[in-house]
């Protein structure tokens, strides 16, 4: 009963003191708000770059051209060999005639040239279109396929793909690094703001000690206060993220400049970011208060 009363009192007091020390609370809250907005921006940006990178990477295809005289049995054999390779995501076979038809469907010029070709005299080669699970292994898979009997040439945009992969890898690492660095800076900034605000309440802590409050007893209201400050500071960033991102997504119709660059679908993306923001706010608020009070509890 006593413990419950102490906890209830701590909650009430921490809530009260947020308003009693309004200007100081406002300072902490706005510090949290501003830094969390920057963090939210960084997360939105980096996640979209990541998303774009994975989309592009997912689109990279290996095309294996078969020799013209390959029989159906041999084709089946190649197909099962390819499927037995590691890192294979999907394998699609296109026969000569399927490819001709596709090409003729796409343009009248092709139709007029290709309409007389049949399976035996077409210059077109049957192909396997292969997607891999891991873009980094594309070279290995392509090399393995090119060694197979009946496979003429293997193409996957050599050179370009490797460059793209290493570029995306770099962008990804930089963006993650930036988000982490920002979170650390945020933590540092907020912790210091709270430290300053608590420093001005040294007297309160001193009196609590004087009248016989145990250290935990003193810490709890301040830590709860940090929690409230964290929650309050994350409200505006969360609202901005949710409404801002949805608006952005609608305005650009889900793609940036070209259908090639797709934005991440808002749901559940915005809610995940909100969770991250409030978690950072709360953790940093509580941590800031805790370290700040602890300093004043040493004699």
């Amino acid at each position: 009963m006593k413990a419950i009363r102490i906890i209830l009192r701590s909650i009430r007091d921490s809530f009260k003191s947020v308003f009693r020390n309004f200007s100081l609370s406002l300072a902490s809250v706005s510090c949290i708000t501003i830094t969390l907005i920057v963090v939210a921006l960084a997360i939105v940006l980096s996640q979209n770059v990541n998303n774009f990178a994975s989309l592009v990477e997912g689109d990279v295809t290996i095309v294996a051209f078969l020799e013209r005289d390959v029989t159906e049995d041999e084709t089946d054999d190649i197909s099962s060999q390819i499927n037995n390779l590691p890192y294979i995501e999907s394998v699609v076979y296109k026969s000569k005639m399927e490819l001709s038809k596709e090409m003729m469907d796409s343009s009248d010029v092709f139709t007029s040239v290709m309409k007389d070709w049949d399976d035996s005299n077409t210059p077109i080669q049957a192909t396997f279109q292969i997607k891999v699970k891991d873009i980094n292994e594309i070279k290995y898979v392509a090399d393995e396929i090119s060694k197979m009997d009946g496979v003429d040439i293997v193409k996957y945009g050599e050179g370009m793909v490797e460059q793209l992969v290493s570029l995306f890898d770099m962008v990804r690492k930089i963006s993650i690094g930036m988000v982490i660095a920002l979170i650390i800076v945020t933590a540092f900034l907020i912790t210091n703001t709270i430290k300053i605000t608590i420093f001005s309440r040294k007297r309160e802590i001193e009196i609590m000690r004087l009248v016989g409050a145990s250290n935990i007893n003193i810490k709890i209201p301040f830590i709860l206060e940090g929690l409230f400050l964290g929650i309050m500071g994350s409200i505006i960033p969360i609202i901005l993220t949710i409404f801002g991102y949805v608006k952005l997504y609608e305005k650009f119709d889900g793609q940036l400049f070209s259908p090639f660059i797709k934005l991440i679908v808002p749901e559940p993306f915005i809610y995940l970011i909100s969770l991250v923001l409030i978690a950072i706010g709360i953790l940093v608020g509580m941590f800031g208060s805790y370290t700040a009070v602890r300093k004043h509890l040493k004699i």
């Binding site: 009963m1 006593k2 413990a3 009192r9 004087l210 016989g212």
Partner: peptide
């Protein structure tokens, strides 16, 4: 004196009891 200026006289005194969790 070391009083808390933002608390009333009553609250300043009650402060010393509240930390014990008295009803």
């Amino acid at each position: 004196f070391k009083l808390l200026p933002k608390l009333t006289v009553y609250e300043n005194v009650a402060f010393a009891l509240e930390i014990f969790g008295l009803p």
